[in-house]
Design a protein around this nucleic acid. Structure first.
Lengths: 233, 233
DNA sequence: CGGGTACTTGACAATGGTCAAGTGTGGTGG
DNA sequence: CCACCACACTTGACCATTGTCAAGTACCCG
């Protein structure tokens, strides 16, 4: 990890969390924040670390994950540019309940607790932005819990493929934005299981796979799978 | 469901969400809220209903849950006196993403969206209270995801038993606060599986079970289970 | 070209769910 | 006060899904 003093004011203006915040306050804030870079795979914080501040992704991607006692990983979130992480345990004055690591070379902004707490008491728009943020995150978790408890892996995978087509506005040809190993962890399973299910889908002519590139051949069937109406035999 | 006009001002003062709110505003709010009672098992809202307001439990208990396409239930939350629910989808202007039903005869306060949105813009303490609330809820979900994905049912059950001892400040004799069927749904499993695991624990002299009353005989072993160090063979 | 990582494949084990048939048990009404 | 019904829970036999372990292959980066 490398650390820099900086003048990231321009960058901070584009962060949704700071929308509506007076420029002067943003300027003050920028002077006590720190830029940090993390290499691919590098740990940003570990479960149990004290949360004396939080982070915002500027470039790259960061995963938040838990580890089981046997070492299995469950990804809770993947954050990209402009998204804050680690702010909840900071609010609560607790330790981080999960790990954070860079999925790729990433630039993040570190914001110390006291500075932010002062600011949020001064400016109501910051509190409202924060509320919106946490609300969206809660919704995300609701779906994650639902998936893990009530759906099988093929259904979760189908839903993820459709999600990719949606955010990329492509209907058929998509490219995984993470490795298959990481995808397995995101879907709450392991690489072996994911591999087998992809195979099955290929065998049933639902999709074609070439490395990270996936072509959805039978969209209808994938949608039926994702909605839980059908199962993958 | 029965509905009443009311003067629940006294009750509203005791709700943590409204802590620090000027009495005048609370009074205004109380005049546009509605009291509703729901019988045991009665639905309060269904997934997909428009969220034109949210609720606060005054007496009784309310479960928030999802249903799979085959009818399996996963409880996301159980809320008791003083706790609000349904506020997140209301914030986001979306439909309820889950069901809510009364676990027992319950009295709830219904708060229409517009009144609350006005209030939150006027009073920053309300936003801060809300932030604290959502933060705690996120933490809860983090643990739920972790449990569902990384732990097995006996470990989740052990953790729940320890949780009961903690909130009741008892070390050995505890009483389930919900039916075993509902407990299964809370732990992300089904009654049959829960029943078998309780049996196993009894057979291994970890606990004794008499209806809803459970006595933890071998606390140490339960703690090892809950922490994931041991498994139940 | 070499080496490591990511991914795949196979044989196997186990956790947990399904289905079906009991066994209570508490509450209500006769 | 007792009988009965509904409902919660239990138990057994079975099976599906998914994880484990162990090799092997492909692929990318230096």
């Amino acid at each position: 990890m490398k650390e820099y003093r900086h003048d990231a004011l321009k960058r901070m203006k584009t962060i949704p969390l700071f929308k509506g915040l007076p420029e002067t306050q943003l300027h003050d804030l920028s002077r006590i924040t720190v830029l940090r870079t993390f290499g691919r795979g590098e740990t940003i914080f570990a479960e149990g670390d004290g949360a004396d501040g939080f982070y915002i992704v500027l470039t790259g991607r960061v995963k938040i994950f838990k580890l089981s006692s046997e070492g299995k990983e469950q990804i809770l979130h993947i954050f990209t540019s402009g998204e804050p992480f680690g702010e909840v345990p900071m609010f609560l004055g607790e330790r981080f309940p999960a790990y954070a690591a860079a999925l790729e070379e990433s630039l993040v902004l570190y914001i110390p607790k006291t500075a932010f707490i002062n600011l949020i008491h001064k400016d109501p728009s910051l509190a409202m932005n924060m509320l919106a943020l946490l609300s969206i995150r809660l919704k995300h978790f609701t779906r994650l819990v639902e998936d893990l408890s009530l759906k099988e892996v093929p259904q979760r995978l189908a839903a993820y493929l459709l999600y990719l087509t949606k955010i990329k506005n492509k209907t058929e040809d998509i490219e995984l934005d993470i490795s298959k190993g990481q995808l397995a962890s995101l879907l709450g399973t392991i690489p072996e299981t994911l591999s087998r299910i992809l195979n099955k889908m290929v065998a049933q002519k639902l999709i074609e796979v070439r490395g990270r590139k996936i072509r959805i051949v039978h969209t209808e069937a994938i949608e039926l799978l994702a909605s839980g109406i059908k199962t993958l035999t």
